[in-house]
Design a protein around this nucleic acid. Sequence first.
DNA 1: CCTACCGATCGGTAGG
DNA 2: CCTACCGATCGGTAGG
Lengths: 219, 219
Amino acid sequence: MLPFMQENVDEVSVPKRKRGRPAKSVDQRNESARRMALVCVAAKQFRQRGFHGTSTRDIAAAAGIQAGSLFYFFESKEAILHAVMRDGMAQAAVAQAAALEALGSRASGVTRLEALIRNHLQIMVGPESDFIPVMLYEWRLLSPEQRLDVAEQKDAYEAQWMPVLQALYRTGKLKARPEIARLLIFGALNWTAQWYSDSGSLSLDELTDQSLALFIGER
Amino acid sequence: MLPFMQENVDEVSVPKRKRGRPAKSVDQRNESARRMALVCVAAKQFRQRGFHGTSTRDIAAAAGIQAGSLFYFFESKEAILHAVMRDGMAQAAVAQAAALEALGSRASGVTRLEALIRNHLQIMVGPESDFIPVMLYEWRLLSPEQRLDVAEQKDAYEAQWMPVLQALYRTGKLKARPEIARLLIFGALNWTAQWYSDSGSLSLDELTDQSLALFIGER
DNA sequence: CCTACCGATCGGTAGG
DNA sequence: CCTACCGATCGGTAGG
């Protein structure tokens, strides 16, 4: 799974193009692709050893470039972390929207919650799940401005759960108040990054079922 | 709440005493008390800014000693982290045992779970709650030997939950399998360190009630 | 416990 | 993108 193409003008300043030219030059495409690859490499390392446990030299070496060259693409180490979180959240938002849309409008509340849980677990512990765990566990290392920026994406992502939880609360299947339930449920799911391993005997589907059983007593 | 007196012979080597002498000399008492205070100071800083975000100079300054003096008490920065986790877990184990014993032997499964949840939340977000969050969130920074050591305490603490969860599962109040339920519930509770604030309108009792409602639909 | 200090590492930059 | 390098910080130590 690749991070999004989404430009982040704050972090790499691209020279202004003249009007009338094509949208992106070959150079810009290559640069953008290279940058994406670097973000992926960084995400994996940050996930494995943490932000502070990963040096910019580590990232450069894993990407096959010289240590100083990283700063041609990113203005600082924090900017790399920010990019990992931005790209991860953008991707998570798309996956979640797709998961909900795939259900159609007549799906039950339980089915919707199940889809949200499965999708979130996939993001947390599935293959290619480096970005969001990094975001969740290295959150406080962002600058205030960066944090505000990512918080916007995160809030939008979490807000999608509220109508589902509210509906389940109204029908009595969810017994905890939706706002607190959301926080507790996200905690339970986010914590899976600490203990779930693909090699274990527990499949993602089983974990989804057990989560549903715990939270609303069904499935 | 003070960390435990528990000696950690691995970390500060105290000269062997001659037989027949009193258990601890005045010097050793003072040294031990000073060491405990340092662990408290370190716990607070690790909690606030993380292990890597806290320098040994920060800890020394907050404790009112010179930077190098820390290494008279601890052999390394990691040893301080280890001590925070050891002391925190020892304290948590005592608090949990007391919470269960206070119930007596005729308490219901729901009541027992409620007591466990309230106690754990207290440890996570109550006043003086620096130790366990540090343990949970800086876990991987320990050396393999240190990690094994703390894991022993942690496993014993978590094991106390199993009979309670199993009983609730048998009576049908808990719908998820006990082992997975334990992991998910701990996740939900451990995550409160990320969002709960004393200043908010949600009391610890309310949070306990809502957690119970979410997990077993009661209270 | 303090003073004085060291070696290593690290993020980041200049110039090409 | 690379080469070559800098300044700061940091964990830790020797000697008292």
